[in-house]
């Protein structure tokens, strides 16, 4: 299993790079949703550097795997992963959230290479992902569609409309990943509006469910590999995560939902990630 160990180590490194970019871009932009971007970083790393069949040289490749960030406010994590994967120059990350940038606060498919769908109004991404999955079947294509959901987002009724329809059509080429970081804008998810029991809900809606620690790379790898092979039902990976993961003073703190770190805080955060002596991108 030496190979597997090396893979895990590589993916951990990628996740760390993505975290660094997130902090630098949000700090530079003086805006953005840092907490929920840091909680999906490990998932993004595994998707973009291990699972996805994609071609950064040809973002429109019709047989590519699709990704939708239904919790569009975590866009910084997506842009960081896309830049690291080679979709656009890393320097461009510094334009995030600025006027005339291709990197909008919420993802825009017509502006950013690699972004397969615009999002920002919660609850909508899963329906679009379902449409892509149904289209693959109709067009006899083998691409897979991955959609990343926020936990607070599942309070939207549309999520459950889509969950019902996906099960009805047995779209096993659709894989949802729930970023269960237990915090939303105004407080603890299950205090704002209890979404538990999560696993049981998805199961009775007819989905295959896999529960993992969303920061253990080996668990993410295994879950995604299992999910793409699963037949007959759509799969949801319920990933237990930590909002603000990787930065001690941001972890599990509700205020870091959409707070931009000051230069000093960013420096401290980067130091924790091991980037104390480096400059920018």
């Amino acid at each position: 299993m030496v190979f597997q160990e090396e893979l895990i180590k590589d993916l951990e490194k990628k996740a760390n790079i993505i975290r660094r970019y997130i902090i630098e871009m949000i700090s530079n932009a003086e805006g953005g949703h840092i907490g929920g971007a840091l909680s999906i970083t490990d998932i993004m790393a595994v998707l973009y550097f291990h699972i996805l069949k994609i071609d950064p040289e040809n973002p429109e490749w019709e047989d590519r795997d699709r990704v939708i960030l239904s919790k569009g406010h975590a866009s910084a994590a997506w842009y960081a992963a896309l830049a690291e994967r080679g979709y656009f120059p890393k320097e461009e990350l510094l334009t995030f959230d600025h006027i005339n940038s291709r990197l909008q606060g919420h993802p825009d498919m017509n502006k950013t290479p690699g972004v397969d769908m615009s999002s920002g109004s919660l609850g909508q991404g899963i329906s679009v992902a379902l449409g892509m999955a149904l289209a693959a079947r109709y067009l006899k294509k083998i691409y897979r569609t991955f959609v990343i959901l926020g936990d607070g987002e599942t309070q939207e009724g549309q999520i459950w409309e889509a969950a019902m329809v996906a099960a009805n059509y047995s779209t096993d080429n659709l894989i949802a990943i729930l970023d269960y970081n237990k915090l939303q804008l105004y407080g603890e998810t299950n205090t704002i509006m209890n979404i538990e029991p999560v696993i049981e809900k998805w199961r009775v809606f007819g989905w295959n469910t896999i529960e993992i620690n969303g920061h253990r790379i080996n668990e993410i790898v295994q879950a995604l590999e299992e999910a793409v092979k699963f037949e007959g039902k759509p799969t949801i990976i319920i990933a237990h995560t930590i909002k603000g993961k990787g930065v001690s003073f941001m972890e599990n703190k509700v205020e870091w939902h959409s707070l931009a770190p000051t230069k000093e805080q960013a420096k401290q955060a980067l130091k924790e990630l091991g980037y104390s002596n480096e400059k920018g991108f």
């Binding site: 769908m117 909508q124 329906s127 679009v128 449409g131 892509m132």
Partner: peptide
């Protein structure tokens, strides 16, 4: 058939259309 769920229906259509082949 999308059932009585119009919001989802619009999204599903968007996903299909994104392929540029439907």
């Amino acid at each position: 058939e999308m059932g009585i769920a119009e919001q989802n229906m619009m999204g599903v259509a968007a996903g299909m259309a994104s392929t540029k082949k439907i």
